[in-house]
Design a binder for these strands. Sequence first.
DNA 1: TCTCATGTGGAGGGGTTCCTCCACTTCACT
DNA 2: AGTGAAGTGGAGGAACCCCTCCACATGAGA
Lengths: 197, 197
Amino acid sequence: MPLVPAPQTPDRPLRADARRNRDRILDAARLAFAEQGLDVANEEIARRAGVGAGTLYRRFPTKQALINALFEQRLDELEPVFRRALAADDGWAGLVDLLQAAVALSARDQGFLETLAYELGPEVPAHLFDRLFGPMAELLARAQAAGDARPDLVPDDLPVLLHMAGRSTGRRLDGRAMGPEEWPRYVGMLLDGLRAC
Amino acid sequence: MPLVPAPQTPDRPLRADARRNRDRILDAARLAFAEQGLDVANEEIARRAGVGAGTLYRRFPTKQALINALFEQRLDELEPVFRRALAADDGWAGLVDLLQAAVALSARDQGFLETLAYELGPEVPAHLFDRLFGPMAELLARAQAAGDARPDLVPDDLPVLLHMAGRSTGRRLDGRAMGPEEWPRYVGMLLDGLRAC
DNA sequence: TCTCATGTGGAGGGGTTCCTCCACTTCACT
DNA sequence: AGTGAAGTGGAGGAACCCCTCCACATGAGA
């Protein structure tokens, strides 16, 4: 018989109130990050979720843990797009689909945009990025095989290109917001440069 | 005779020591911003310049004033490129020249890159941006007249496109820095998308 | 119902940053 | 050399921000 009580199983289900609070934190953080970007104060998130700062930190020991959890949620949302794009025959069309879906999400969610920015990248576990860039790489290979994409493109180019495309969303110099009917034109121009000539 | 002493002329020349300190602040700030980006602490800049925080604030009442002064210096450096590009016949080549020069500067100088990012834009006086985008707009018009650039491009597109191009510099997802022999390829792809088909 | 492991809120510790203030020093002009 | 305006440094105020701690509350199994 052990002298110390058995360590609690790491994935023991949360108590009902704790689970509820966890969900409220995620919802509040998602909204706050989407509106204002990742450097919202944690206390603001706790306030909007209606919990104390202590509760937030019990559930997400660091801010990065919260960001990663939200990033995973966003990838779950993109899952249908992944499947649709991979199921179709046309690799190029699928790649365009996926890129535009990711940029559209960035346009709606400042936090997602900033998580994708490589300046913040090293903090996010690589396997999360792989969920996004794995399918893209597969589609790129198919598009190249079909002669639709530039042959010199390699999978490592995709994060850079997505980052560039993402920057077409956001505010203009004069402070005017970029409308959802404006940025696809810029992404289209970049895609034109990626197409095989 | 006025009861109060005449207000000092606003552009009275600085005392020799003050002028020297101002220059040292600008040099230190340029280096610090270039290396680490705009959110270096002012105290760090003062330390590197060998002056006190008070001196820094006497010369540049806000951090933004310092950033604007440095941005103007960078535009002065680009002046020869402006002139060369505008003097040549080929509008498209000049536009490419200018864009690449600006991105090259962004690659070397994190502070310049961040100043160009429109998230920070509204703080910088519009006339400074005009110095950069005015020549670009002129070259775009010439390139379009020659049938080299997409006819649907308008001057307002240029800041967005420069911002996208600038994001090809910087770190990759795995933390590896983007070498000066790597980013021109990405800028080239974007430019391919801007060329008239 | 009773019990206690689990969960909670929010004050506050420790850190950072921007900027102000003012007693003191230095320059430039006579 | 003397004088006053201009300039200086650096302590510290005010506002943040991330995160910890612990007295107290509460859910859930017995």
